[in-house]
Computed example of a mutant assay.
Amino acid sequence: MLNRVVLVGRLTKDPDLRYTASGKAVANFTIAVNRPFSNQQGDREADFINCVIWNKAAENLANYMSKGSLIGIDGNLQTRNYDGQDGKKVYVTEVLAGSVQFLESKNKTASNSGNQNQGSNQPNTNTPPDGAEPIDISDDDLPF
């Protein structure tokens, strides 16, 4: 049997770090993952995936990543249930992340969110790393 999930997306809000009664760290977070195709109106849609991570990885995620950060996760899908306040069973499906990769620095995330607030007619001041040649490719040509 195989149950493996690999996702790349952006945090929709800051991770929610908590500690169990025994002192284990646990962070709940949601990532927005773009679908690889456009809808009939030509817009890209995203899925919002609920995730949980434990221990030191949870603390690192909460300490170093925030809303808008690009991350990659590797884990598995799990379903759990509990009795809600109204007495009905509540089912939750989420990704139990085994590891998280930080795909951009915290400073880059801050500058990206700042750039989003600027007008769309602002020139792109991003420069490629030393020795790298810029490429001319459309987002529609990318496989992700």
Rank of each mutant, 00 (worst) to 15 (best):
I71H: 04
L7A: 07
G9K: 02
V90P: 07
K88I: 06
K88W: 01
D83N: 07
K67N: 09
K89S: 12
I71W: 05
T79A: 15
A46W: 09
P134K: 10
A27P: 03
N126K: 11
G23P: 10
G119K: 07
P129E: 02
I31F: 07
D86M: 13
S66L: 14
L11G: 10
A58F: 07
D74Y: 11
A62S: 14
N28V: 01
N81H: 12
I137V: 15
W54L: 08
T12Y: 04
P15T: 07
F29Y: 13
G72Q: 08
F48T: 00
G68S: 07
L7F: 08
K56W: 06
D74I: 13
L61M: 07
S120L: 01
N112V: 03
F29T: 08
V33M: 10
T125N: 12
R18K: 13
S120N: 10
E94C: 00
E59F: 05
D14L: 02
N55L: 11
R10P: 10
N34I: 00
P15H: 08
L17W: 06
P36S: 06
F37W: 14
E45P: 09
G114L: 14
Q85F: 07
P129W: 00
L142R: 02
P128H: 00
N55F: 11
S105W: 01
Q85P: 10
P36M: 06
V26S: 09
N28S: 03
N76K: 15
E133H: 06
Q41C: 01
Y91W: 15
S69Q: 08
G42T: 02
A25N: 05
E104I: 02
L2D: 12
D43A: 14
G42L: 05
Q101M: 13
L7Q: 10
P15M: 04
A21G: 12
R4Q: 15
C51W: 12
A62F: 11
G75E: 09
S111M: 12
G119Q: 04
S120A: 02
A58H: 11
D141N: 11
I73F: 00
K89W: 02
D83G: 00
D130H: 09
G72V: 05
I71V: 15
F48V: 02
M65C: 15
G98C: 01
L142Q: 00
N121W: 09
K106D: 12
I49T: 05
T109R: 14
P123S: 12
A57D: 08
L96Q: 15
A32V: 03
T109W: 00
D141W: 03
I135D: 01
I71P: 10
V52I: 10
E59C: 01
S99H: 06
V52T: 15
A62E: 03
P129C: 01
T127M: 13
V100K: 00
I73N: 04
A27Q: 04
L11A: 11
Q40R: 15
T12R: 02
P128T: 01
N81E: 14
V5L: 07
F144D: 06
N3A: 05
E45V: 11
A25G: 05
N60E: 13
K13Q: 14
A32E: 03
G84T: 02
G75H: 09
A110M: 12
I49H: 09
P36H: 04
K108H: 08
Q41E: 15
